[in-house]
Write a protein that binds this DNA or RNA. Structure first.
Lengths: 203, 203
DNA sequence: CCTACCGATCGGTAGG
DNA sequence: CCTACCGATCGGTAGG
């Protein structure tokens, strides 16, 4: 503790000058653009103005960077969707609001790169990391399972709920493959179109 | 032509003993399981019982293998969905049939590995190959655009058609990320659930 | 956080 | 299709 305090003496506690955060942001962007395997730690270092060996002062390994990016991505989406849904009792209204929050976290400037890693790089994780990511994803998806259960009870949905959840989240998550930030449709418009498709109208 | 005929003299024309096809099948499976970048040409060679340099007797490069896998995947899906839709005038019935055909081509034993490459490895293509793949994907998606136009004219859909097509195909294509061949729901059941979600009932 | 470096791996090729 | 190999690249480390 003393030794570590000395190294960070010139800065407030818990703040490493944000170099760690810079690396994560660059890694997230590069992972999304080129994929985890095709991104080199040298790419990441160059993106933040470091030499090739320096990212390893902040992260034990490239896999550790990926895990950090993914956990950040899941937390952003979970927190933002949970906050948006809080206090909305009507399941149809909650669906519309949660779809919008999911899309804004998925495509918005803050979380886009992190979310993309969550959705497309699970394969690259080592077993222990995959288990942790899987558990956190499962916790988030519970929000949707509960909602869909209420919608079915209200007569707004038919059929298998687990399958329905996978199809709905699939439609939303697939947007990371085609969405263009310069295009006409923004996150909210996409979410609303999905709500229209699933519920028949906007609540 | 004469020179090529000599090399294949011992076999029927157009048949190279299926070694080329073996390589493509192994490459498709490995690309799906590990991704293009994480699959080595040595992995592919080993999977068909060859030495490391031998796949390059059949393909000019690893990128060429990927392109061949992807074009095969698009052709399989396009042909099979087009054949299934032929002669079905009612758009609601055609939707159900096309969704089933799409899912069977996407997850079935014949095309699963090839389709996964189409959906997840576009990033790895070189520009010229990406243009060709993009054009063929566009030709396939026209089948869906026409169908959705008819559905909207019949009052079964509302809102933006391009967005709706992307969401519907997204829901279907995302299945490659979670579908388990050993699970309960098969391709047809998944397709039917999507039809239920979009049309409100099964036509 | 940099310098200098290592061991391993990889796509691809020459020549047979 | 194999043998033998090359040049480049990559994740990671020691020492400062």
């Amino acid at each position: 503790m003393k030794a570590r305090a000395a190294a960070a003496a010139a800065r407030p506690a818990g703040d490493d000058g944000n170099r760690r955060g810079d690396i994560l942001a660059a890694a997230g962007r590069l992972f999304r653009e080129k994929g985890f395997k095709a991104t080199t730690t040298r790419d990441i270092a160059a993106a933040v103005g470091m030499r090739s060996g320096s990212p390893f002062y902040h992260f034990k390994s490239k896999h550790d960077m990926l895990l950090a990016v993914m956990l950040d991505g899941i937390r952003t989406i979970h927190d933002s969707v949970e906050a948006a849904a809080a206090g909305i009792a009507d399941p149809r209204q909650r669906f519309a609001v949660m779809a919008r929050a999911h899309m804004q976290a998925l495509l918005g400037p803050g979380g886009r790169d992190f979310a993309a890693a969550v959705l497309h790089e699970t394969r690259a994780l080592e077993p222990a990391a995959a288990a942790e990511v899987g558990a956190r994803k499962g916790a988030y998806e519970l929000l949707w399972s509960e909602l869909l259960g209420e919608l079915q009870a209200a007569g707004a949905l038919r059929g298998d709920l687990a399958l329905t959840r996978l199809l709905i989240l699939g439609a939303l998550n697939w947007t990371t493959q085609w969405w263009d930030p310069a295009g006409e449709a923004g996150p909210a418009a996409i979410a609303d179109q999905l709500t229209l498709l699933v519920l028949g109208d906007l609540p």
